[in-house]
Amino acid sequence: MKKLVMMLLLIAIMVNNAWAQKEIVFAVDATWPPMEFVDAGKNIIGYSIEYMKAAGEAADFKPVFKNVAWDGIFAGLATGKYDAICSSVSITDERKKNMDFSAPYFKVRQALIVPKKSQAKSLADLKGQKVGGQIGTTGYFAIKAADGIEAKSYDEVGLAIEDLNVGRLAAVVCDDPVAANYALNQYKDTLKIAAIIETGTVESYGIAVRKGNQETLDLVNKGIAAVIASGKDKELQQKWIGQ
């Protein structure tokens, strides 16, 4: 009986390999919650991971995730160790020279983090109060541009969050994945994301593939388009980022 099951399983795997979906190996630097990270059971999980799984279902490919350290992740793509990178890679003109990018699957937005008991729903509610951000970031520029707010700049966003946590700031503005990481993990008992702020600059994450690898790129793009069309991306955003 046992043997039979084994045989069947083996056949199933072989058949699967023979026909079925194309396999795409994604390199992931799984140290970036909530976008891609490793859970207690050492599984790679996160927003991007679920997104690509959904894209795979829609466009009929099988995503395989391979944990790779960030430095060297682009070199590995060039030498063909994997087909694509799914690791919160921002689409920039500089990178476009060396690799091809899929359609954006995530737009980075600025999140307003406030203490749990705060009533504030936007920067306008915080007039006359201190709001912090990391120096030189989009988030800090948004605070500075807002009317009647005392902008405080920090060297690291973590220091600003800590200052918010002990009550010296009324709010902090930063990239929403980062915000979600703080507000939904480390500081989940004291902080929350109050709102998403619209800013002029748009930064997007895309899937990077080796230059000229049109087959993979088409599959991924097809999947991303299907996920957006079905509204699944909104659902994932709600699940992993909370807003």
Binding site: L159, E162, D163, V166, R168
Partner: peptide
């Protein structure tokens, strides 16, 4: 930052 946890 360190004492900030105790006295603000």
């Amino acid at each position: 930052f360190a004492l900030g946890r105790i006295v603000r």
